[in-house]
Simulated scan of single mutants.
Amino acid sequence: MESLLGFMETTSSFDVDVDVDRSCDYKLVPWLTWDEWDLVRDSLFSSSPHSITLSLQRITVWRSRGCLPIVIEVTASIVEIQQKDPFFRVDLGDDALDSEEMLTMLYCMAIVRLVNGVVEKTRKKTEVSIAEAADAINIPRMLIDIRHEGSHRDLPSLRLVRLASIKALDWLKSYYWELQKKAIPFQSDGIGSLRKEIKYRLCELAFWLKIKHTKGSSPSLAKGKRTKHCEQLCGRN
């Protein structure tokens, strides 16, 4: 649950509320409501360049507020690079980034940021290596190799980092976006159950207000009237 300032209940290392039962603290997030977060998620992975642009602009606003989870930051970076890559968008025209070396460096930088920012937070440095920590969260080994090559050796080919960007987005969807979507409070059946409960309570309140001044009714008779009246107002379901 979050306030208008964006406070939410969470337990994950990446400000993701994926385990409500174990939640014990609050962290500040840059979005105001879960509806806003979900709209950005939906637009970010859409096929509409206009929707993608709007979602990237909203994430820029979130970044300016601080406390942006690294998984969102890296997702936006990779999507933004792809939007400048003529391989992913043939309609770019003059907005395309034609330099293959520059595209390769941008992709590498985003992947390095992903591996360092995500994996480093999940491992104990004195106990396991980055590769072992990456295996524990099922991050593609290709991303680990590209991070190593881009940091210590020659840059990988553009074809390879393009493929890696696709794998990175697929992993980010399953690791963060889909899990967080499922963990949004009062979602799916929870909303339906809550609405039914509120509706029933309102019917019950209306009934008791109606018979408030009735005298001489026995408890069993009043209960029977209440049930029958609520069924008439709300239906048996």
Rank of each mutant, 00 (worst) to 15 (best):
M1R: 02
L4V: 12
L5F: 08
G6V: 07
F7T: 14
F7D: 12
M8W: 06
F14G: 00
D19A: 10
V20C: 07
D21L: 14
R22A: 15
D25L: 11
Y26F: 14
K27C: 07
D35L: 00
W37N: 04
D38R: 13
V40T: 08
D42M: 09
S48W: 10
S48Q: 09
P49I: 02
H50P: 09
I52Y: 05
L56Y: 06
L56T: 00
Q57A: 09
R63D: 02
R63Q: 07
S64L: 12
G66P: 12
V71M: 01
V74T: 08
V74Y: 02
I81S: 03
I81N: 05
Q82S: 05
Q82A: 00
Q83M: 13
D85E: 05
G93K: 09
D95F: 12
L97T: 07
D98K: 15
D98P: 07
S99I: 01
E100I: 00
Y107Q: 11
M109L: 13
M109V: 07
A110G: 06
I111N: 04
V112W: 01
R113D: 00
G117Y: 02
T122E: 15
T122P: 00
R123I: 15
K125N: 07
T126Q: 14
E127C: 01
E127N: 05
S129G: 05
I130V: 13
I130C: 04
E132S: 00
A134E: 08
D135Y: 01
I137L: 08
I137H: 00
N138Q: 14
N138K: 09
N138E: 15
I139H: 00
P140D: 06
P140E: 07
P140H: 05
I144E: 00
I144S: 01
D145W: 07
D145T: 10
R147Q: 06
H152M: 09
R153V: 02
P156G: 00
V161T: 04
V161L: 01
L163M: 12
A164Y: 02
A164S: 03
I166C: 04
I166S: 05
A168I: 07
L169E: 00
W171V: 02
Y175F: 15
Y176W: 10
W177M: 04
E178F: 11
L179Y: 01
K181T: 13
K181Y: 12
K181C: 08
P185V: 04
S193D: 14
L194G: 08
K196D: 15
I198L: 13
I198D: 09
Y200A: 13
R201I: 07
R201M: 13
L202Y: 10
C203T: 06
E204C: 07
L205M: 12
A206Y: 14
A206F: 14
K212A: 13
H213L: 13
H213E: 15
T214A: 14
G216K: 08
S217G: 03
P219D: 01
S220W: 10
A222W: 08
K225H: 11
T227Q: 12
T227D: 15
Q232H: 14
L233R: 11
L233I: 11
C234V: 03
G235S: 04
N237G: 12
